[in-house]
Amino acid sequence: MTFFRILILVFLFTASVDSMAQRVVEKYPNGQKKYQGRTENNLKTGTHKYWYENGELQKEEKYNDLGAVIRLREWNEQGELIRDEKPEEVLEGFREKLFNETNWIGQDGIFFHKLKGANELQQRTDYNGIVIHYATYLENGKELDNSFRTKSPLLVQFNSKNLVDGFLRGLRFFEKGDNGYIKVPYDLAYGKDGAPGIPGYANIYFHVLVLDIR
């Protein structure tokens, strides 16, 4: 795995660049293509293919715009399909079950559950900002956004007018080092009309890891 990662890094430096996208191609010593794929903003996107040295397709990975694997197929050297999975669908089902079975606590319509940290109804009001990693989901487990993948923490200012009100209120229950989920009802999220990619009347779920408070 380490050698493979080194190869990827080497080819990233020699790949052609189109805006923020990078096309990566690897070849065997005999000139046969070994790997081909694209990254954008440090995330794998689109279709990534791997070949055996004899030219037969070995593996094909398809990624969505968030960098999540939505389909994975593998073949043996004779060209026979030996694996066909949709990992993101499995994760969506897992998340939906998790959201339905979680013991939420909350007040005034905002609910949360911490995997790490105190599950207490005590809001913090002595800081103005909070630095977090976060992921956003619909109730059916579909992922909407994810800073864990992009490795880009978000600085949230509590006087912000650009974020969901219920999310800001839920963050007030979190402290540095806390890791958990916030459940925001539709009327404190995107309302009855929804937003691009978000249906109306949708409850929104946030996974939050607090890196710092300010």
Results as ranks from 00 to 15, higher is better:
residue 29 P to H: 07
residue 129 G to T: 15
residue 128 N to M: 08
residue 158 F to P: 01
residue 176 K to Q: 13
residue 177 G to M: 06
residue 26 E to D: 07
residue 43 L to N: 10
residue 130 I to H: 01
residue 27 K to T: 14
residue 210 V to I: 13
residue 32 Q to H: 06
residue 211 L to R: 07
residue 8 I to C: 05
residue 70 I to P: 03
residue 200 G to R: 02
residue 152 S to E: 10
residue 209 L to M: 08
residue 206 F to E: 00
residue 174 F to M: 10
residue 93 G to L: 09
residue 195 A to T: 04
residue 86 K to D: 01
residue 174 F to A: 10
residue 75 W to R: 04
residue 98 L to K: 15
residue 164 V to L: 04
residue 183 K to G: 05
residue 80 E to G: 05
residue 206 F to M: 01
residue 106 G to Q: 06
residue 204 I to Q: 01
residue 56 E to R: 07
residue 208 V to S: 03
residue 125 T to S: 12
residue 188 L to F: 02
residue 47 T to Q: 08
residue 168 L to K: 13
residue 202 A to M: 02
residue 170 G to H: 01
residue 22 Q to I: 14
residue 133 H to P: 05
residue 108 D to K: 12
residue 199 P to R: 06
residue 15 A to P: 12
residue 140 N to H: 10
residue 136 T to L: 04
residue 101 E to A: 15
residue 117 G to R: 05
residue 176 K to L: 05
residue 119 N to L: 12
residue 54 N to L: 03
residue 169 R to T: 13
residue 67 G to R: 03
residue 146 N to K: 08
residue 196 P to G: 11
residue 29 P to C: 10
residue 177 G to F: 03
residue 63 Y to P: 07
residue 81 L to N: 04
residue 9 L to F: 11
residue 98 L to E: 11
residue 64 N to Y: 07
residue 189 A to E: 00
residue 142 K to I: 14
residue 102 T to V: 14
residue 34 K to R: 14
residue 135 A to G: 09
residue 23 R to V: 14
residue 42 N to K: 15
residue 48 H to I: 11
residue 145 D to H: 11
residue 89 E to M: 08
residue 170 G to Q: 01
residue 28 Y to P: 04
residue 160 S to E: 06
residue 126 D to Y: 03
residue 116 K to A: 13
residue 169 R to N: 05
residue 103 N to L: 14
residue 134 Y to W: 01
residue 37 G to H: 02
residue 56 E to D: 07
residue 30 N to C: 10
residue 198 I to W: 00
residue 5 R to I: 15
residue 156 V to W: 00
residue 126 D to E: 10
residue 113 H to W: 08
residue 172 R to H: 07
residue 87 P to R: 06
residue 113 H to D: 04
residue 24 V to E: 02
residue 36 Q to L: 11
residue 181 Y to G: 01
residue 80 E to T: 12
residue 76 N to A: 05
residue 107 Q to G: 13
residue 157 Q to D: 10
residue 97 K to E: 05
residue 3 F to M: 09
residue 54 N to A: 06
residue 115 L to H: 11
residue 105 I to T: 12
residue 207 H to A: 10
